[in-house]
Simulated scan of single mutants.
Amino acid sequence: MTTPSYHLAHFSWGTLRAPFDDPKITTFAEAVPRVNARAEASLGFVWRFGDERPPAEAAGWPLFDDERVIASYSIWETPEALKAFVYNGSHGAFYNKRAEWFDQDAPRGYVLWWVVPGHNPDIIEAWSKVDQLAAEGPSDAVFTFAQLAPSAISDQS
């Protein structure tokens, strides 16, 4: 068995239609712990930031002035593992219903980048990748699934 030289980091954010504690968001809010537990049990999962809604005093939060914006970031062994989680199973079911809970006309998106195994990015690094993707577009350094940088996928040690 080979060990990948890189893991895939993922950071995503979206704007809820209402604050997290609003009854309009209850179904989504109540599912978050279950979906996170499934992520952690998924094949290829490495790490995730522990709380999409950290305390106000946490570095970098809130990401936006709007309290409806939530974010998540995680590390996966491969793009295939992350894709399988995002688009299939319980997360996939919620992803397909995202218009019920997320404002489709408000800030949202995601960015991917390679990290060495054992490195867990902080919010400053994650947000810098968002800025880099917005400023420079997809590259080997930052990308989306549509522009997946191939340079580290097959790199084995």
Rank of each mutant, 00 (worst) to 15 (best):
E77H: 02
A99Q: 12
I25M: 03
D51P: 00
F64N: 11
Q132L: 10
S139K: 11
P150G: 12
T2G: 13
A93Q: 15
L112K: 03
A81W: 06
A58R: 13
H91A: 07
I25E: 02
A39P: 02
W13V: 05
S151M: 08
V130L: 09
P23S: 04
N88Q: 15
S72W: 13
N36Y: 05
A31I: 01
G92W: 03
R48P: 04
I124Y: 07
F143Q: 00
A29V: 04
D140K: 04
M1F: 14
D65G: 15
P107M: 12
V46Y: 01
F94N: 05
V86G: 11
D103Q: 08
Y6C: 09
P150V: 13
Y6K: 13
V115G: 03
N120S: 06
S12T: 04
P19L: 05
A9R: 08
V116Q: 09
A141Y: 10
D105C: 10
P54Y: 14
I124C: 04
Y6M: 10
D66F: 04
E100V: 12
S151T: 11
H10S: 06
R108G: 07
A71G: 07
A59M: 03
K97A: 15
V130Y: 07
N96D: 12
W113S: 01
P117I: 07
P117D: 07
W47V: 03
W101E: 03
P117K: 04
V111S: 00
K97T: 15
F20L: 09
D155N: 12
E40K: 07
E52W: 09
S151E: 06
N120L: 02
D22N: 11
K83Y: 14
E80F: 14
G89Y: 08
T2Q: 15
S128M: 03
V69D: 10
W76K: 02
A71W: 03
D51H: 06
T2W: 14
L148R: 01
I123Y: 00
D122Q: 03
G109N: 07
F102I: 14
N96I: 07
L148V: 11
N96Q: 13
P4W: 03
H7K: 05
K129D: 01
W76I: 01
I153W: 09
D22I: 05
P79A: 15
V130F: 06
S128E: 06
M1P: 12
R98V: 12
S12L: 08
Q156Y: 13
Y110M: 09
S5L: 13
F85K: 00
N88T: 11
E40R: 05
S5G: 08
A149S: 15
R34N: 04
R68M: 04
Q156F: 14
A93D: 14
E67Y: 05
W114F: 09
I123H: 01
E100W: 15
T26E: 13
S139I: 11
E136C: 08
G14A: 14
F28L: 05
W114R: 08
W113A: 01
W47C: 02
T3H: 14
T144Y: 04
F49Y: 12
S157I: 13
Y95D: 12
F102P: 07
V142Q: 05
A135C: 00
A84W: 14
W114K: 05
F45S: 00
F143C: 08
A149W: 10
G60I: 09
D140N: 08
